[in-house]
Design a protein around this nucleic acid. Structure first.
Length: 440
DNA sequence: TCTGGGGTCCTAGGACCC
DNA sequence: TCTGGGGTCCTAGGACCC
């Protein structure tokens, strides 16, 4: 029964490795999913070892608007989990230590993680700041059978980064991902080829990536709560009920990378499709001057990243969230793509005044750029001298910001109120823990 | 429970064109 | 001046992920 051969502390090598004795099956597709344990918390512990072993919540202070980015295992015992409002976390676990997030620290550690991973396989894909897929197919000669390779990786990770990770091994990304979750914390788990369905069957449908709250309750309504129930259902019925998604779901219940991103080859890098920034006020605001200056700042951040990535965006989107949490987005597509703060702001300002219920207190503002044109598309467009001068001025400003920090330079329109915002509200922007496609 | 920030993908409807 | 169908682009919203 070589199913749970994996967990680090009670793993015995060999007993499940018999399949590789003759060298044949090394051609079987072998995917590793490496997931760092309580990543943000562990990184904070490196900087402040006194946090070790305590209930720690990363994401902001106990009274702040915001949610938990990461919780230590100690805090999780009290029901604290990521995405939980900070204030709720404080109620569940009053003795927890609340820590602000430090995106730069996480990025830096993530780069070290990436280095360790690339020393094991050339095909590494960072799926987010703290997890990655490795294609380990055909590496048996170099690294030995999967479990041995995984343990070596786990050890080197600890050596080089001082961080714990968990490794899931399977014949598909899906299986690897689900198995790393089961291996946590600090474990290794290999799902032997052929055992996929058996492994998945007893798990909650919620364990399948892509099944969230809504899909879960839809499935519950049909009397389906375990992956095994799902696998027994007719594929056609799933398709009727849930469309294209249902088809994929049927495949996933069998452990296949059915459709969508999961189907891509590991390491096939994907270009960014949108860039956005948003800000939630600690207290709702209906002050037009303050709102406008926030928008200006957001436009500057978006513009800056467009220039950094050499993107030109055609579609600009504004996001408004009112006090009661109702949220609208309003977009406009330009005739010609841009990467200029001023042009972005012009659109955003128009959209804002056209759609803001004047005087209504606002909780969140956001600016997004999408529909990217390539540099080549851009070259073919005639470039006026005016645009060129703006471009020069902005890249000079970008360089200054690099040197002296984000707050040194602001376009005139963004000045008023922005000082106040930066000191009092300090957007403690929690790190992009989202899909940072393409490795560091 | 009083709900962040940064992303991706999907759906659905309307405009417009052939 | 009644009317089919397909393709593409755009917009808005929502589910989901970390």
């Amino acid at each position: 029964m070589p199913l749970h051969t994996g967990e680090l502390r009670r793993c015995t090598l060999g007993e499940s490795d018999w399949r590789f004795a003759d060298g044949m099956p090394s051609l079987l597709k072998t995917i590793f999913h490496v997931d760092m344990d309580a990543f943000f918390v562990s990184v904070e512990e490196l900087y402040d070892p006194s946090l070790k072993g305590k209930a720690v919540v990363v994401g902001g202070q106990r009274h702040e608007r915001g949610v938990v980015s990461a919780a230590s295992y100690e805090a999780r015992k009290f029901g604290v989990h990521s995405a939980m409002p900070l204030r709720t976390a404080a109620k569940h676990c009053p003795h927890a230590i609340f820590v602000d997030g430090h995106p730069e620290r996480y990025r830096e550690c993530s780069e070290k993680v990436y280095e360790v991973l690339t020393s094991f396989s050339p095909q590494v894909e960072m799926a987010s700041i703290d997890e990655a897929y490795l294609d380990m197919t055909g590496t048996a000669r170099l690294h030995g059978p999967p479990l041995k390779a995984a343990h070596a990786l786990h050890g080197r990770m600890k050596d080089k980064t001082l961080l714990n990770c968990s490794v899931g091994i399977g014949s598909s990304r899906l299986i690897a991902k689900v198995s790393s979750a089961q291996a946590k914390p600090n474990g290794v788990l290999w799902i032997v080829p052929g055992e996929e369905a058996k492994f998945l069957a007893p798990l909650d449908v919620r364990e399948i990536p892509g099944v969230g709250k809504v899909m879960e309750s839809n499935l519950h309504a049909l009397g389906i709560s375990k992956v095994g129930d799902l696998a027994r259902l007719e594929e056609t019925e799933l398709e009727e009920r849930f469309g294209k998604w249902g088809m994929a779901l049927a495949g996933k219940a069998r452990g296949e990378d059915a459709g969508g991103w999961f189907d891509n080859a590991v390491g096939a890098d994907t270009e960014a499709k949108s860039i956005s920034h948003e800000h939630t006020y600690n207290e709702d605001s209906a002050d037009a001057a303050q709102l406008e200056s926030t928008l200006m700042r957001l436009c500057e951040m978006v513009g800056r990243r467009l220039r950094e990535g050499k993107f030109h965006a055609r579609t600009i989107q504004l996001k408004l969230r009112y006090k009661d949490f109702t949220t609208i987005t309003r977009a406009r597509t330009l005739p010609a793509p841009t990467q200029l703060d001023t042009e972005i702001f012009e659109q955003v300002r128009l959209l804002f005044y056209k759609n803001w219920k004047q005087g209504a207190p606002i909780r969140l503002l956001g600016v997004q750029a999408s529909s990217f044109a390539t540099e080549a598309d851009q070259m073919s467009l005639l470039e006026g001298g005016r645009q060129q001068r703006w471009r020069d001025a902005l890249s000079a400003a970008d360089r200054l910001r690099d040197k002296f920090g984000e707050s040194t330079i602001t376009l005139a329109a963004g000045m008023k109120g922005s000082f106040r915002e930066r000191t009092h509200e300090n957007p403690a922007g929690l790190p992009g823990k989202g899909k940072t496609r393409g490795a560091p």
